[in-house]
Amino acid sequence: MSTSQTNETWYAVVARVLKANKVTLVAYVPDNVLAPLIKLIHADPDFTVVCPAREEEAVAIVAGAYMGGRRGIALMQTSGFATIPNALASLICPYEIPLLMMISERGTLGDFQKGQAIVCRTMRPVLQSLGIEHFAIQDMGQLEFVVDSMIKQAFATQAPAAMILSPLLTKRVAA
């Protein structure tokens, strides 16, 4: 999908905004929806990419890098998010670490996997109960503003942020 004005894809916008905010360390566990962003980031020498075995690891790597003075982001899908609440509750939140997360939203708006659909419903209650800022990005018109301002707020307030990529952004055919 692309905007009519620039033909820039959602993943190109994300990569550009990450770089503009000096977020150059990316740790991810892969996902089909994130695949084009992952491919783009691997091909861009400005990014350092780490591929851990679990999402918890990605969270801790990005947290450690922040404490060492480098900005990073953890990419995951909804089922991956469901594996990290303890790391959020016992590391990220109490130490006030501005962990950036980008979560591709599976299990809604046409997903055919029942497990994805059920685990998806746990994501927002977990984010809300931990008091973590989150926003589901639904269209290209919102994308740059939301990603840019959530990154800036996270570092300014030393608080984690979850940028959720809705299927409305990543799957919907452009009108």
Partner: peptide, 11 residues
């Protein structure tokens, strides 16, 4: 260990 890896990558 992954926290230490993150610090090592940053510095």
């Amino acid at each position: 260990t992954p926290i230490a890896l993150g610090v090592a990558l940053a510095q």
